[in-house]
Amino acid sequence: MRARTVLLSLVAAGLLWGCGGQHDPRSGGFFGGVAGLSGGSYDNRVKEREARLEELRATQAQLDAEKGQLETQKSAAQAKVSQDQAKVDAMQADIAALEKKTSTLSSQQGADQKRVAELQKRLDGLKTGMRKQESSLDALEGSGLGDAEVDLKRQQLEKQRDALRKEYDLLMKMQMELAK
């Protein structure tokens, strides 16, 4: 009888020992096992873990979704930046071209101005020269004649002077005669 009681109490103790709190299926031996199995603590443990995993999975999904969004955003932003950069590059190329053109035109205009100033100078010089020539020719009282005609003009003048002198002398003589 005593043996039975001892054994039974041992089993009970074992069982009791097995129950109570978390039982890790990796330990606790047979009794722990029985306790865990029957007490449901093994199940609870699994359930706990499953719930935790569920939570984590939910967070993971969220994070994945976020990641997806952010990645889309990022690639869109990158595309935009590339676009903007391309625009800026194109514009800078235009500006560079314009600057080049402007400097070419500027130097061309500078050269043109010089040429025009020169032409103007030459023209003015020509006109001055002509005026000088004219003023020295004005001394000819603008007879405006060609070479052969100068001779003719000269001769006409000489003859006219001689004839007038003659007439003048004659008239003077007559006047003096009349005065007598």
Binding site: A148, D162, L164
Partner: peptide
């Protein structure tokens, strides 16, 4: 008056010479 005749003479002489 006084000019055309001597001018004519000068011109005719000029013609003769040239």
């Amino acid at each position: 008056g006084g000019l055309t005749r001597p001018a004519m003479r000068a011109t005719l002489d000029f013609l003769d010479r040239t």
